[in-house]
Design a protein around this nucleic acid. Structure first.
Lengths: 213, 213
DNA sequence: TCCTTATTTGAATTAAGTCTAAATAAATTT
DNA sequence: AAATTTATTTAGACTTAATTCAAATAAGGA
């Protein structure tokens, strides 16, 4: 690590920001440029100055969202993104990976992984923590066993509403659909995931953290 | 703050622990005794030494759960608990309050609230952050509506079967009851917990770790 | 004993869900 | 470009689940 690398933190939670700062302070040559707690603030600050690395915990609606990440990628392609998340939402993580995000950790990572990820971001190298690697491997490996990656975007949307506790009628209203449509989607989802009832689907969804917020 | 107050942190996430430590370090006289990342580890450490304050982010199944908190309260009544959570599950929060937890913050709190909560825990005083206060007010305001009450043993039994994904008919078979009985129990449970549908109950049950087997 | 809570059930009604079948649009393959 | 697959959408007839209203029994506390 040569001269100094500038960093910005985008995270709505005080404790997480403090944790990130604590870890940053253990690496020489990393300079904290600014912190943001919500999207608008982040974009205002980015207009003034751009960090080399943006550490972002994107999954905190309405403060930040996956869309925030996509906008940063689009408008500031030179900024290295270090994504922090504590979720298990495979499809969302996969989408970000497909958008070209190179560095990815979860809050479940150990200290070594977090530091390795930081160094990778500095060097503009790729780094995926163990959990994210699992997602990558699972996706390329399993075709036979039931996996949520086989669900269509619409189906995933419906599963996430089910996981919120909404019943078919409410989902239909929410998405401006016929209840029949919701029933059909649910039936197809049950078949794909090899589940027997809506209750089982709900258990599955919650245990696999398929809620998108 | 007199001599020194001992603290332990129970949180599975590295970043959160780092954040808490960072905040602790800004208060003189607070000594970190140990950190735990999961329940078994916590209980082993508690057998050896007990902190004055236990800061716990309990809502991280399978690392910690609401049950972890209840066990600590039962076995170590002298330990001051400082609960950290980022969830909106008001029933779970209310239950912990009823169990005698005095200090409660969420990850959405600002720095001032977190520090006030820490000081309150040191002084064995009560402290509720704005969000938790909202929950309290909501409850005391609606005396007419059904309150959160402790479920009867039979009701808990039924909730745990619901949480396994069993539907009413299956539960009736399992417990050798009429389906009507199951419906009645479920209706009463919904009323007690102020929930609207079976789906909501299922979400509630899973999020509160009411699964027995 | 009287009262409350817990537990249990039925009959009638309403709501939810399933099955069958199919139309449309978009994406892929040939 | 044409054919095929996949995704998304919906209806009608039918089945099952759930709710409402009403009530009986048992257990425990005031």
């Amino acid at each position: 690590m040569e001269a100094s690398t500038t960093i910005a933190i985008a995270d709505p939670q005080l404790l997480s920001r403090a944790g990130i700062k604590h870890l940053l302070s253990q690496n020489e040559g990393l300079v904290l440029l600014f912190e943001s707690t919500r999207e608008e603030e982040l974009f205002s600050q980015l207009k003034i100055q751009q960090p080399n690395i943006l550490v972002i915990d994107y999954d905190h609606s309405p403060h930040f969202s996956a869309n925030t990440v996509h906008t940063v990628i689009k408008n500031y392609p030179d900024i290295q993104l270090l994504i922090i998340t504590d979720d298990d939402r495979r499809h969302q993580i996969l989408r970000l990976l497909e958008s070209g995000v190179k560095t990815f950790i979860t809050k479940a990572c150990n200290e070594e992984e977090v530091e390795d990820a930081l160094l990778a971001a500095v060097r503009k190298e790729k780094f995926f923590c163990a959990k994210v690697l699992d997602y990558l491997l699972e996706r390329s490996a399993s075709q036979a066993s039931p996996d949520i990656t086989i669900l269509s975007p619409r189906e995933i949307e419906i599963v996430s509403l089910i996981a919120k506790g909404l019943v078919a009628k409410e989902i239909a209203a929410e998405l401006h659909l016929s209840t029949h449509t919701v029933y059909t989607h649910r039936k197809n989802i049950l078949k794909k995931l090899n589940l027997r009832s809506s209750s089982e689907l709900l258990v599955f969804a919650l245990q696999n953290n398929l809620v998108t917020g």
